[in-house]
Design a binder for these strands. Structure first.
Lengths: 198, 198, 198, 198
DNA sequence: TGCTAAGCGAGACGGTACGTCCAGTCTTTTG
DNA sequence: CAAAAGACTGGACGTACCGTCTCGCTTAGCA
């Protein structure tokens, strides 16, 4: 009888313990001091893991930061009952709360300083930045299906009108970031600003 | 006879030529290779200006980058004739065109990587990032005054619904950045997405 | 019933092919780039042999270098006919020719950088460095036996007066290394430098 | 009247204190643990001098080792009274004593592992390795002038017959290194090994 | 006219971090 | 069950910049 083919590569497997220690230490540094203070050197010395071992998994400190965020995922957003408007406001409000934390600020900076092209950057964008936007998309699609909302608009633009302001304020800090923003955004979005024609 | 009070500080005045050479070189580097490649060392060696001379004017490379952008200002936005909606679309469209350039991307990255607190960062934000937003504010206020548009909404939120999506897409690249976005944004903003009540 | 006694050790035998490939690759590297450029890592990657396999046979790069030289032995020295003086000069001359090659230089450097104590180092010394000195000793002993040469001197010192200058010049390069040296050495050795007493 | 030309180079002068601390630390390491244990990293951390500062003066650890030896020169050899033969024996004896120390062994290893071409290597060779050989040359020349010694031999070869055996034994360790060697060498050199003709 | 204060360039300084190479060891699978 | 092979930890490499510090030398207002 044929021998079972081994699915493993030859050689010593990568150390899971080292990987976890590195991701954890990186996360702590980023959260407490910011992405700018995350260096491979420091992670290596704090964890006792060798630098080459870290470089074997991540190409530079930005990648490591993204991986660290992805390894410590956000909790899921929960939706209360209510009208579509209320649902959307509640959702946006919780997203704002999440991103106005230190973690949110650091995530945004990390995204900004990363190379957009790399695979890891795309994964980070989708898993960490755009996950809530996808939740918003589902809400909108359900609202359309239920007939409470028009179906004629460009959904990508609408989504960005809801989530864009959040990151804009996070980056520039020109306006406060709180849940009343969620209400204003959704209110304006539903009603429009044009005066009602007679 | 009373001595004329000197407005000048004692000692040799700072060299204007050095200042201009530094700003120009910094701008070239940022535009051609990105903010990340701008180092004081390099600017010093390319211009022949001493490092301490550069540090006397700017605290670090980020500040220099911001100063370089401010010294090379954007041209003004011109507004064609038309309805308020058309005016706003045209304005947004030209802002998008400006920021979707290499310069726009680098400005955004510079903003993202700067310390938000410093005086220079605030000036940069107001002069470079938010200048167009202020132009949009004027347009909106005029539209309100003319009665074509409601006056009940939160103008800050509305402005961020127009400009936020731009920077959001610039940073994450999840959606294309072109003038059709301007149209979708303004259209949705004026009309809202709620189904018209009977 | 007793099992036939196996003459083999248990387990997989060492790969002769791997051993030969390693020695050959090491020799090539040492000859073309010098002992200092010989690293286990490089030999492993060039031959496709695993590093532990190499370490199983040699403790470090110096040992491997010595082993590589020993696996590629020098051809024997041939002696023409003539007086003892001529024989000795011819012998020294051929030794000088051999050692003034690239191989000779690398052998000397290898000896210099090796730990003197190890068994392999002693073997290397005897087989590679001192083999020609032993040939010289035989010549001298025959000359003594034949009565052409005194028997009162310290033969070790005399041998080192013949071979020492060679390695001295090889290491420091302060004087050229050619066959005229052989003549001068032997001439001076036979005659001495003291003025003949009346 | 013409202004006095400045003899100094522009810029901050190199720190003498740093230079001395580095040379001293390097010397201590080499003497106590051997050339192989001298690393720039270690010298930097022990002295508090930055690595780039060290590299500004020396290209690698070997150069630093040579510089360290040159900064800690050998004491001069003193010559007692006696015949030329006795003088030469005394001199060689003291050279042997010097080089059979730990310092001598390390100097020889350093020479062996250095690039022969560099300026510093040549200086090291002349100042540290060949200084005593030059002293020996003077002795010989005086002996020739005084008529006690022939003038027909090749002085370079003769010098290497005296000093070569020393380094040969130092490197290979095949024979002991003590002052009786000095006597044998000089004895043989003066008298030759050929049987006296009738 | 000469003094003085602050500018200027150059370049070395102590440092931090980079990303790489290599040494030797450990842990798998393979023959 | 030892050999083979790849990943491991860890030390050092040599380089790039950081931001600061001496230097010797302008430059320009003030006395």
């Amino acid at each position: 009888m044929a021998k079972a083919k081994s699915l493993r590569k030859p050689g010593r497997p990568r150390s899971l313990a080292a990987r976890e220690a590195v991701l954890e230490a990186a996360y702590q540094i980023v959260m407490s001091e910011g992405v700018g203070r995350l260096t491979i050197e420091r992670v290596a010395s704090e964890t006792g893991v060798g630098k080459p071992t870290i470089y074997r998994s991540w190409a530079n400190a930005q990648e490591l930061a993204m991986a660290a965020f992805m390894a410590q995922p956000e909790e899921e957003f929960k939706l209360p009952k209510g009208s579509w408007k209320e649902l959307l406001q509640a959702h946006l409000s919780s997203v704002i709360k999440t991103f106005s934390s230190s973690r949110g600020r650091q995530i945004t900076l990390t995204m900004a300083s990363a190379e957009q092209e790399s695979e890891l950057a795309k994964a980070f964008r989708n898993q960490v930045i755009l996950k809530s936007r996808e939740a918003g998309r589902k809400l909108l699609e359900q609202a359309i299906a239920s007939g409470s909302v028009k179906s004629t608009f460009d959904i990508e633009a609408v989504l960005d009108m809801l989530y864009g302001p959040l990151f804009f304020r996070l980056l520039t800090g020109h306006q406060p970031l709180n849940s009343s923003l969620a209400n204003h955004l959704v209110e304006t979005l539903f009603e429009g600003i044009a005066v009602a024609d007679a």
